[in-house]
Simulated assay, not measured.
Amino acid sequence: MRARGKRARALLLGAAAAAAWALPACAADAPADAPADAPAHCRGTIYLTFDTGSQSQAELIAATLKRHAIKATFFLANEKTVRGDWSLDPSWAAYWKARVAEGHAFGSHTFDHVYWRADEAGGRIRVKPQFGADAGKVETWSAARYCDELRRVDTRFMELTGRRLDPLFRTPGGHSSPNILAAAQACGYRHVGWARAGFSGDETSSDAYPNALLLERALDGLRDGDIFMAHMGIWSRKDPWAPANLEPLIAGLERKGFCFATLREHPDYRTSR
Score class of each variant (00 low, 15 high):
1 M>R: 06
3 A>Y: 08
5 G>E: 13
5 G>H: 11
6 K>N: 09
6 K>G: 10
7 R>T: 14
8 A>T: 09
9 R>V: 07
11 L>P: 00
13 L>K: 14
14 G>H: 03
14 G>T: 09
14 G>E: 08
17 A>N: 12
18 A>Q: 13
18 A>T: 10
18 A>S: 15
18 A>L: 11
21 W>H: 13
23 L>Q: 11
24 P>C: 00
25 A>M: 03
25 A>E: 08
29 D>S: 13
31 P>E: 02
33 D>K: 01
34 A>C: 04
34 A>D: 01
36 A>H: 04
36 A>W: 05
40 A>Q: 07
42 C>N: 08
45 T>D: 01
46 I>V: 13
47 Y>K: 02
49 T>P: 08
53 G>M: 03
54 S>F: 06
56 S>W: 05
57 Q>F: 09
58 A>L: 03
61 I>W: 00
62 A>N: 03
63 A>M: 10
68 H>A: 07
73 T>Q: 02
73 T>F: 00
74 F>D: 07
74 F>P: 04
80 K>I: 09
81 T>H: 00
81 T>C: 00
82 V>Y: 01
85 D>T: 15
86 W>N: 11
87 S>W: 00
87 S>N: 00
91 S>G: 09
92 W>D: 01
92 W>F: 05
96 W>I: 11
97 K>M: 01
99 R>P: 00
100 V>R: 02
102 E>Q: 12
105 A>F: 01
109 H>T: 04
111 F>L: 04
111 F>V: 06
115 Y>M: 03
115 Y>R: 03
117 R>F: 06
117 R>W: 10
120 E>C: 08
124 R>N: 13
130 Q>H: 13
131 F>K: 03
131 F>V: 09
132 G>A: 02
133 A>E: 15
134 D>A: 12
137 K>H: 12
138 V>K: 10
145 R>G: 09
147 C>G: 15
148 D>W: 14
150 L>D: 09
150 L>V: 11
154 D>L: 07
155 T>F: 13
156 R>W: 08
156 R>G: 08
156 R>P: 08
157 F>L: 08
158 M>T: 15
162 G>F: 09
162 G>D: 12
164 R>T: 13
164 R>P: 14
165 L>H: 10
165 L>G: 06
169 F>M: 08
169 F>R: 06
173 G>Q: 09
174 G>T: 05
177 S>K: 01
178 P>G: 10
181 L>N: 14
181 L>S: 10
181 L>E: 15
186 A>V: 05
187 C>Q: 05
193 G>K: 00
194 W>K: 04
196 R>I: 11
197 A>V: 07
198 G>M: 02
199 F>T: 14
200 S>T: 03
202 D>R: 03
205 S>P: 01
205 S>A: 07
211 N>Y: 02
212 A>D: 13
213 L>Y: 11
216 E>L: 12
218 A>C: 03
224 D>N: 15
225 G>K: 06
225 G>N: 05
226 D>W: 02
227 I>K: 02
230 A>K: 00
230 A>I: 02
230 A>D: 07
232 M>C: 14
233 G>T: 07
234 I>Q: 13
235 W>F: 15
236 S>T: 14
237 R>C: 01
240 P>W: 03
242 A>I: 15
245 N>W: 09
256 K>Y: 10
258 F>H: 13
260 F>I: 11
263 L>F: 05
264 R>E: 07
266 H>M: 13
269 Y>M: 08
272 S>D: 14
273 R>P: 13
273 R>V: 14
